[in-house]
Nucleic acid binder design. Structure first.
Lengths: 243, 243
DNA sequence: GCGGCGATCTTTGTTGACAATCGACCGCCG
DNA sequence: CGGCGGTCGATTGTCAACAAAGATCGCCGC
């Protein structure tokens, strides 16, 4: 029942072995990786059987995912993996823009050598994974790059809001990635971001964030419209169950 | 397991009678009203007995509260009502400033007669409850006033983040109110807020929000420092159980 | 053929008991 | 008298079964 938030300092968390946490991790990863596609039905009984546990811990894990917005539950009818609407993706990007600007605002005057080093390191990791063609890893590393400013801002509330968004963002990217197939971030996509983040012009950083999000949002918009055209207009009901 | 988010439009939610939701409501209200003070221990077994239900539904309600940050759980040791640190209150105010500006930004060009009318209505309600000396209601109505812009922004993600903050904000106000005793918001505190919100100068609105939060934060700072001096420096451990 | 109606079946909500884990207390030994 | 180990108690984690609620679907009357 505790929320441990993986160690942020040197990751010293030993390991949590409660079923709930293991299930939570497994489910989250399944959803993000696309093994459980948006709209897929979730049956408590079936999943419990598959994991070899009772419905108790499983239920609690589902509860967390529901509260995070990765699952949607309609009482006595069924639980399914959340399906992002264009509106929702729009909201994620616009809110994220504000939050990320705020994060930079918080950390701006406190940036030091360690900040620059870590940001650069994450950027290099991103480049490396793009180079090696591992799209899954690229997405993770892009997220890690952006996450850094939230971690460095020293604002735990902001960080927890970001972590909430992060899940949905991954959900969207997973769908995007699956649909367009093998199309991770571009290598040059974060050069300006890194340059501004290490520079001395806050206004430029702010402008870069807005642009960066707009670029991401542009791809999004195209993708969502295309999907809508393919699958027919959404009426608010979840996609038909797969599997 | 569903998250119903009390109806935001005309409050038209029928009634949810699952134990979990009733318990959730009862606990949240107890915490906010101060019946359960920060640091107070929460025993699953005892509470279950008091409510006359088993630990199952109670546990799920606690889980939600924990994820919301109103409760803190240390596995195998105990669960207690969260105790806000000065840092945390600072974070709430600073984040809230950003969010509220963003909310106005979203709604600014879409404000219409209905917007003005509802905002005015909530302000009058606030004035009325201040006049009648009901501090509990004053706090609720102040929150309702500020909530309106989040509801009107038409940004569901923003609204859900705000709702997350709202709980902690109430927790803080409850402590503040209990300590200073009978000292609700001042009648003139929101005149400028209302005027700017209905005016045509967005920059003025932004400035007003920043100022408004700073005023709130000032009172906070004083209060927290005073409490710290009274109760001795905090070492990170929860306050001793009251009850 | 069609609409209302009831049985059935799936899914969630709830329960009481049992097991694992950890902190605190107490007696023992050096 | 102080440190140490074991035991006890409290608390959370887990389980399997039962109950309730709603949806689905076939049936009957019209």
């Amino acid at each position: 029942m505790d929320v441990v938030e993986g160690g942020s300092a040197p990751g010293w968390t030993l390991k949590r072995r409660t079923y709930r946490d293991q299930i939570l991790e497994a489910l989250r990863s399944s959803i993000i990786s696309g093994a459980l596609q948006p709209g897929a039905r979730i049956s408590e009984a079936e999943l419990a059987g598959r994991f070899g546990v009772s419905r108790g811990p499983l239920r609690e894990a589902l509860g967390v995912l529901i509260q995070e917005g990765l699952l949607v539950s309609i009482p006595f009818t069924g639980t399914h993996v959340a399906d992002l609407s264009p509106t929702e993706v729009d909201e994620i990007f616009s809110l994220r823009t504000q939050l990320e600007i705020f994060a930079f605002q918080q950390v701006w005057d406190r940036r030091d050598a360690a900040f620059a080093q870590e940001l650069t390191r994450r950027h290099e990791q991103l480049l490396a994974s793009i180079d090696s063609g591992d799209d899954e890893a690229s997405i993770q590393h892009e997220l890690a790059l952006h996450s850094f400013v939230y971690e460095a801002a020293g604002h735990s509330l902001l960080l927890s809001v970001w972590n909430g968004l992060r899940g949905k963002l991954q959900l969207y990217w997973a769908a995007h990635h699956r649909a367009h197939g093998r199309r991770g971030p571009k290598p040059e996509g974060h050069l300006d971001y890194l340059r501004c983040a290490l520079g001395d012009d806050f206004a430029a950083m702010e402008a870069e964030i807005r642009e960066h999000m707009l670029r991401g949002f542009g791809r999004t918009q195209d993708f969502m419209r295309a999907r809508e055209a393919t699958q027919g207009p959404r009426t608010g009901r979840p996609a038909e169950p797969e599997q």
